[in-house]
């Protein structure tokens, strides 16, 4: 039997140290950290809400006209998918968001590079974008309808603008915020301008770019929702808006559910890419 127990865990009720064993007396201090993370911590809250929702519906405490039961929503989703227009609506919405996002992302990156890497570019571009940023993009909708009509082009254009602004702002800030010590290093090591941009400026700006990218992804969904609910004749938002007129709360919930899945999947995808590309940062965070 051993009396030399050295507790290193955060045992709250530490037993009195064994007598006759001086030198191994060690009282663990009370731990102030919240302790170990619970397994699947991110899922517990949502699952509890879902359970509560299901229980309340089953007990008949919820007005099915306002909040239909979870299984009703699922059944409606299946029904809409097989017999209704849900599949085409989802495809339409995804296409809009994807085109707008791709164009906005490209524009944001190209403009940020042009403005971040040359003083002339900065003079021409930065002020203009800052001005553009001051105008809420969704406020441009009436003007864009006049210019581009109410078709797909206008929707894609608005989403692209919503996306390019955060991408530009964050990438540009990161590009122009390159540590001057690294600029000096590049000069000492005799890097060419191209090598300087490739090896120092661009990798150094990537963390900022990813911040912009995630804001851009969020922005593209937000833009999509707004556009589809006011000025569309197809797509998820249109489906939900129509459902309002007929009091079909289950259809609205199906739409919200799908928007949620869109947001979750796209954000996870960006995070995954970010983790891969910025793998050198993991050593700092872990």
């Amino acid at each position: 039997m051993s009396t030399t127990t050295t507790t290193t865990t955060s045992a709250a009720a530490a037993p009195p140290p064994a007598a006759g064993a001086p030198g191994v007396r060690r009282r663990t201090r009370r731990s102030l950290s919240p302790g170990k993370r619970l397994p699947a911590a991110g899922l517990i809250g949502p699952l509890a809400v879902l359970a509560l929702w299901a229980a309340a519906s089953a007990a008949g405490r919820l007005d099915p006209g306002a909040i239909p039961a979870p299984w009703t929503v699922l059944r409606t989703a299946g029904h809409l998918w097989t017999e209704g227009t849900l599949a085409t609506d989802v495809a339409t919405s995804l296409r809009r968001a994807a085109y707008g996002f791709a164009i906005g992302l490209t524009a944001g990156v190209v403009l940020a590079l042009a403005s971040g890497l040359s003083r002339v570019g900065e003079a021409l571009i930065d002020g203009t974008v800052q001005l553009n940023r001051a105008i809420p993009t969704l406020g441009l909708i009436p003007l864009f309808i006049l210019w581009l009509g109410i078709g797909e082009t206008f929707k894609i254009a608005i989403i692209a603008i919503v996306v390019y602004i955060p991408v530009y702002l964050n990438t540009h800030a990161a590009l122009s915020g390159i540590d001057s010590r690294f600029v000096e290093l590049a000069e000492v090591q005799g890097l060419s301008r191209l090598a300087f941009v490739r090896r120092i400026v661009v990798p150094g700006a990537l963390p900022g770019f990813f911040v912009g990218l995630r804001l851009g992804v969020t922005g593209s969904w937000l833009g999509l929702v707004v556009l589809e609910q006011i000025n569309a004749t197809s797509g998820l938002g249109y489906m939900m808006f129509q459902a309002t007129n007929y009091g079909q709360s289950d259809v609205i919930l199906v739409g919200l559910l799908i928007y949620g899945v869109f947001g979750l999947v796209s954000d996870s995808a960006v995070r995954l890419v970010e983790r891969r590309v910025l793998s050198w940062r993991r050593t700092l965070n872990s």
Partner: peptide, 25 residues
């Protein structure tokens, strides 16, 4: 051919050690 060693190591955090050593070579 002049090399400079600064007070800080000035290693680029996004390049592995060997790639840092090879910066410019």
């Amino acid at each position: 051919r002049v090399s400079v060693v600064f007070q800080d190591s000035r290693l680029l955090p996004w390049r592995r050690v060997l790639d840092n050593v090879l910066l410019g070579a």
